[in-house]
Write a protein that binds this DNA or RNA. Structure first.
Lengths: 157, 157
DNA sequence: AACCGGTGCTTGATTGGTCAAGCAAGTACC
DNA sequence: GGTACTTGCTTGACCAATCAAGCACCGGTT
């Protein structure tokens, strides 16, 4: 089928092209690199770190699965599996939700909190070194807003 | 509490924090979104598209596996598997390398080229809509350089 | 000319994610 | 208060990537 929506679109400019290629590279390379940095240092892969971090930021260190999944940018089933991994390491515990017996709370344990505290310097260093460092001199707030817009995926109409 | 193991690094500023979070979101969401856009439209997932595109840009539409893997930001085995997928669809053919019988060339077939031509408007649209659109008003060349630096991963010391 | 370390690619096992189907608890409606 | 639908999460099947091991070939050494 011919694509009706696209009447032979204009090609990218040279700068756009360069940016898109560089983005492709970053999207592939950065997660693995940061992950490798962290795993090498404290055995906490990025996904699990993110989950613990989000839990630690709530007042009572617990969160419903669907909310946590959204914050981690993970599908609900992906979240389930991550939490199971964390649970077997004793970093997280699960409790049935009081006000809705279908729901579960992931609860950060003391061990989990301790592990997070051990990990964050390494995470911080990785993020600075692999990413922030290269954006010195940029207007970070403006850049952050642009990324936020790009990250909010609307459905694939 | 103070962290003894690591000279307590400075926490991120608020803007840095926002940027890092937004980047995390983009890295998770964008590849899947663009992929979904493309698959929905022309059944060519992003990885395979990228491989075909890189092949199409060589003078004789062929490339050694390791070079192609590097351009696609894929491991060599990942590249092998991608090329196998493309081969079974008839979009790529493999030929032993003339000057080194260990090596293989991935060769873009006519069908592959045609498929690429069908796909690129959709790829272009996805990239614009999901990414470039949000960076209007930025200095794209400068941004591209920063991304290139970030994408060049040095080994995990 | 036989060997041997290095190189190019593939294969096998594993991992970490997805989607779709399932199940159990809640909710609305008659 | 049962029936039908919805919601929250888990499970099963799958998929695309990784790493490590294997195989075939190269090229220099003797």
């Amino acid at each position: 089928m011919t694509n009706p929506s696209s009447a032979t679109p204009q090609p990218l400019t040279c700068d756009e092209e360069a940016l898109v290629r560089a983005l492709g590279q970053v999207m592939h390379v950065l997660p693995r690199t940061i992950d490798a940095d962290m795993v090498g240092d404290r055995q906490l892969p990025l996904t699990e770190y993110t989950a613990l971090m989000n839990l630690s930021e709530t007042p009572d260190r617990r969160m419903r699965m669907n909310e946590l999944a959204a914050l981690c940018h993970l599908s609900l089933s992906g979240m389930t599996r991550t939490i199971i991994r964390l649970e077997t390491q004793g970093l997280v515990r699960r409790e049935r939700c009081e006000e809705d017996a279908r729901g579960w709370n992931a609860v950060l344990t003391d061990a989990g909190f301790a592990r997070l505290e051990e990990s964050w310097p390494s995470h911080l260093a990785a993020v600075r070194r692999r990413f922030l460092q290269h954006f010195e001199g940029f207007d970070l707030a403006q850049l952050a807003r642009a990324f936020q817009r790009a990250g909010m995926a609307e459905p694939t109409d």
